[in-house]
Design a protein around this nucleic acid. Structure first.
Lengths: 200, 200
DNA sequence: ACTGTATGTTACTGACCGGTAACATACGCT
DNA sequence: AGCGTATGTTACCGGTCAGTAACATACAGT
């Protein structure tokens, strides 16, 4: 059936909640969470402040939803790897390195949105903090399990090293103008080879 | 001569400008730059908003002074190394690794203040941005020169790697609750050994 | 004592921002 | 047609915040 909603309007297409979250995501990432007001988000979403507050009870709730979405996408990367290479942790590991490579090269030039959010939302009782912390530990556990499944010794130490290296690189890239992204990928691969489970 | 200023007051001792910068430094680092108002800074400095605005024309100027101070202290680390071990780049390099170790272990648990400032002050025309960018490139140049002087091959690549590793670790530490600080130092040393100028 | 300078105090402005109320409109469904 | 629901519109409240004005105080040097 033909779409009968707003046949003359050019904007909406997607329901307002998605548009608001999309606008928030864009503005939060580009200008920072604290630097963006709810009016600006409503405007960018081609809607208004009232509908924004009907979907999200407060700006803090919107921030939490924003961070939740980011974390969900991060989780989906890992679930996608497990889906694409079931029972093959080595292939999953390789896929993860390739994913890191992609993020580091053509990822946004403003660093990791989740890490940025963690820097901006310092209040320990802010709803976003718990989401961020949970995501980080989930990610670490996934890495440890992956290394463990792939037969690496001391998987938790390796996870810490690679976590710091990749996560840190994303942050530093926004200050350090040169392009050491490829270098980080080489370091990741080198670290993995160094601790390879079955020395050739 | 005896101090005749405010014999009954317990607070001042230091001139107000220093107190203001000190308070700003503490509050900016703990709660974030955008989250702290000028009144709070004046209060914490045991002074008032007027004298704050007499010393710093605006909050942005105060932020710039704050970042300038951070950058100056960062520079002093390198100048101290050059002063303590003149003409001995290898000793300087060792001193720098020890400095990294100290920062990573008992440094603040909120990451690098300069990197946090870079995340919060996204506007390209903000006075703090230029200061931050200049500092980062200065630091990178110092690292490249140090590796070059110490005889390492490909000093710029090595500088990128260590820069990302150390800088990234500081950031990630505030999310990743476990203590992989020691691990990062081991990685630094391992990377340096790997590219050692004179293989044993 | 006189004067200039740095600081403290109070009160204020104007803008912005998060959040809400009240009403109007458009649409889907039966 | 009639109704409920989701959305749009306007106007507003209250608080916070950056920044300023005007005046009062304290001190240093002479």
């Amino acid at each position: 059936m033909v779409r009968t909603i707003n046949p003359h309007a050019e904007a909406p297409q997607a329901p307002p909640r998605e548009r608001i979250l999309g606008a928030a995501r864009d503005l939060f990432y580009r200008h920072g969470i604290r630097a963006v007001g709810v009016d600006a988000i409503a405007d960018a979403a081609a809607t208004n402040k009232m509908t924004l507050y009907r979907h999200f009870g407060s700006k803090d709730e919107l921030i939490a939803a924003y961070v939740t979405e980011l974390a969900k996408e991060g989780d989906e990367v890992w679930e996608g790897l497990a889906r694409d290479y079931p029972g093959d942790p080595t292939a999953q590991l390789d896929g993860w390195v390739r994913h890191c490579e992609k993020v580091l090269t053509d990822g946004g030039e403003r660093g990791c949105a989740i890490a940025n959010a963690a820097v901006e939302m310092r209040e320990i009782d802010h709803p976003a903090r718990q989401i961020i912390d949970d995501y980080k530990t989930r990610k670490r556990n996934r890495m440890v399990k992956l290394f463990s499944d792939a037969g690496y010794a001391e998987p938790d130490q390796l996870a810490d090293e690679l976590f710091l290296l990749f996560e840190g690189a994303r942050i530093s890239l926004q200050c350090c103008s040169s392009g050491p992204a490829q270098r980080v990928v080489r370091m990741l691969r080198s670290l993995l080879a160094e601790h390879a489970p079955r020395p050739q």
